[in-house]
Design a protein around this nucleic acid. Sequence first.
DNA 1: ACAGTTGTTCGGAG
DNA 2: ACTCCGAACAACTG
Length: 259
Amino acid sequence: MPELPEAEANRRRIEADALNRTIEGFWLGDTEHVDIPGDNERARLVGRQITETRRHGKIIFAGSKSGPWLAVHLGMTGSLRPYDGEERPEYTRIAVEFEGDRRLGFRDPRKFGWMKVIDDPETYLAEDRVGPDARQIGRDAFREVIGGSGGALKSALMNQGKLAGLGNLWSDEMLFQTGVAPTAKGSDLDEETLDALFDAMGEVLGTLIEVNADYSKLPSDWLKPGRKEGADCPRCGGTIAKRKVGGRTAFYCDSHQGA
DNA sequence: ACAGTTGTTCGGAG
DNA sequence: ACTCCGAACAACTG
């Protein structure tokens, strides 16, 4: 379930199991409609090694100082799976084959993810107009970006050009913990509320990264464990409600989130 | 069987 | 030119 914390957990798998091994080639599965690098792009990586990784928002980068780099977006259902030999997980679309038996698979059942070969992360992020990473943005920049948005707050939080890393689940969570309605307008919020949102974002993402995105380890007073319509709110006497906001299903407390 | 889905992109309206 | 919204995308899961 890939938003920023899940992308971070996947990045760590590369660090743990796919670093400093020479790339010999690629395995290709059912890649129809999957956006992956072509022959010439893949060939740029053969003979090279992944020596470092990065993450910006939901995008994972794997490469080396002089490049080129692999950039991966997990889409809605993607994950990176190191494996050995032919122990390939189902729905693996493409896999990097390292010297020896090690492979790094890109599993993506619903084919909404992508993989590219790029020269370097900074240039890619600038050209693609990706906003500041949600873990790196400062309080002032957050106030400006979110406080300056005109539409539904939830939509602004999920807009990767404004702020990179939040999706449906964790935008709901930070709004829930702050007590603000998903439909509130950013431009209507006072500074105090914007700061509270910023703090909640840090708390939510920080906690998730700490537990390596293992949802079973989340506090019981979070929205996520009981994120379904009609559930009792774990923070007040309210009830969890559901509605479409910005084209996605938002869950929120009908009592302490004001609307 | 059929509805629902964690994300991005695109066209069109404002 | 920029912002915002809704629909579309593909294919699996419950």
